[in-house]
């Protein structure tokens, strides 16, 4: 691949890749910048291995993920145990707290949570959930693309995403309670 073509393709996804790198590093922007730099050079050196017509974004994100592990990022074993059955956790909690089902969830809860605190909730996920959720929330990837990037089956992507979402919902609800957002809504 010509250098100009490579740079053009990379530039299209660099913003998403930086966001993914920040989330992988748990919010550390300097480390994310170093990681992105290393992955970009590595991809540039190996650009002839990219097969035209395939997914450049998934190819590059895989290189980025591998660079993260080379830098010492940990692959943690799954230790979080959650119910296998999906459940609308936040909705059920809200109902329990007396929030009307017909209320706009964004208005009564989500818009009152600070952006930084949502980022922290993502950054505090156990690493195996963080990877999948960062690719999903930050990298704007489909299950298939995440599967390709992490070399895991689509079914594993689905189950990890489910668990990540559940953990995020628990974290966001706890946050809302600790900030008094839920009480304020409940007794308004």
């Amino acid at each position: 691949m010509e250098r100009a073509t490579f740079e053009r393709e990379l530039e299209k996804i660099l913003g998403l890749a930086y966001g993914y790198a920040v989330r992988l590093h748990g919010g550390d922007r300097d480390a994310a910048e170093d990681l992105l730099q290393e992955a970009s050079v590595s991809a540039f050196r190996g650009r002839d291995n990219f097969m035209p017509g395939t997914n450049f974004k998934a190819w590059f994100f895989k290189i980025l993920t591998n660079a993260f592990y080379r830098q010492g990022g940990k692959k943690e074993l799954e230790t979080v145990s959650l119910d296998a059955d999906p459940e609308p956790y936040l909705y059920l909690q809200a109902k329990e707290a007396g929030i009307s089902a017909s209320d706009d969830p964004a208005e009564v809860l989500f818009n009152k949570i600070d952006v930084v605190e949502v980022k922290n909730a993502l950054d505090n996920l156990p690493s195996e959930f963080r990877e999948v959720s960062a690719l999903y929330f930050t990298g704007e990837m489909s299950y298939e693309e995440i599967s390709e990037t992490l070399d895991i089956p689509v079914g594993t992507v689905r189950s990890r995403l489910h668990r990540a979402r559940k953990l995020l919902q628990v974290a966001l609800w706890d946050l809302a309670v600790s900030r008094g957002i839920v009480e304020a809504v409940s007794y308004a």
């Binding site: 936040l90 909705y91 989500f110 949502v118 995020l168």
Partner: peptide, 23 residues
């Protein structure tokens, strides 16, 4: 339908917050 609304609203929130501006 309400449960889906809540779930979708949570996803929108996290997606809107998860990104970073390229330095």
């Amino acid at each position: 339908a309400n449960a889906f609304r809540w779930e979708n609203s949570m996803l929108v929130l996290v997606k809107n917050c998860a990104g970073e501006e390229l330095p």
